[in-house]
Amino acid sequence: MFITSNPFAGLAQFGITPGMMQIFVILAIIAVVAGILLDVAHKKSAKYFFEHTERMKKLATRQLSSSEKTSMLVQVILNEVLTSSEFHNPKRRIAHLLKMYGFIIFVVSSAVLIFFYPTEQYAGFWGLMWRVGAIMLAVGGWWFFTKLRVDVLSEGKKWYKLARADMFIVSLLGVSTFGLLWCFFQGVVGSTALALLFFALFLISAVVLFGGVYWSKFGHMFFKPAAAYQKRILMADGSRENLPPFYKRAEVLDQSTMDLVRDIPADQKFGLCIMKDEPNHY
């Protein structure tokens, strides 16, 4: 079955042994860990994070119990981590979920194929998963890259204009798109050269993706949940990062001072919100 074939098994003909692939995966893991640590040290993000926590502690109006903190951790995992709830724009949220789950499925199935099925032509479930992951990553990635990226959406730049912030998404697009093309041309008779070309591009993308963590936005996977947890804690302990408390509309409209504007027709008094009015300047 073509859709369950193992793309890595075909590499033997180019002289790439399972051992070499396994070393690549181990080096990639080391590169990611080292990149994150260097990034944290360079940007001093951990230092800022803890300083901010300390500063806000002074404003706290109540102590959180450990069970409250645990429940917040669960909330962060369920909302911000598993369902990307922090995204205000639903399209960005869907694209992010496609990229995130696609990336996880793709990376896990690649590692399984390399370590457990390195020479088997067909790898059943994991061969299929590798394709599912790559397709999800490519669909979410290209959608984000061409339409939803803020540079395109708000800055009015052309989708092909690249900046350093694009390193992460471009390398993700590279591994998924070139990976799928490489896999496809492996199955086409007489396309060895094309398969080799796409494999080379896939490999370069993977090197940039895992080797470029220090320079790319790869680290957000680890920083974002920590920041989301901190934000929830600060909202609950009363410090609220100096934000005002929540009010109910009825409570505000019920103020005696509102009587002063009672003659304004209702539809002219309180309009729709800015977000409900799509920007159309580009």
């Binding site: 994070f49 708000s154 912030a165 936005k217 920041a227 800015i274």
Partner: peptide, 26 residues
């Protein structure tokens, strides 16, 4: 920047067009 998620609403709304997206961290 640690709170911003790069949604671009501020870029859209700024009348002075001075809210922009950083090219290193988006």
């Amino acid at each position: 920047m640690t709170r911003c998620d790069g949604c671009g609403y501020c870029v859209d709304i700024c009348p002075s067009d001075i809210m922009h997206i950083d090219t290193t961290w988006r």
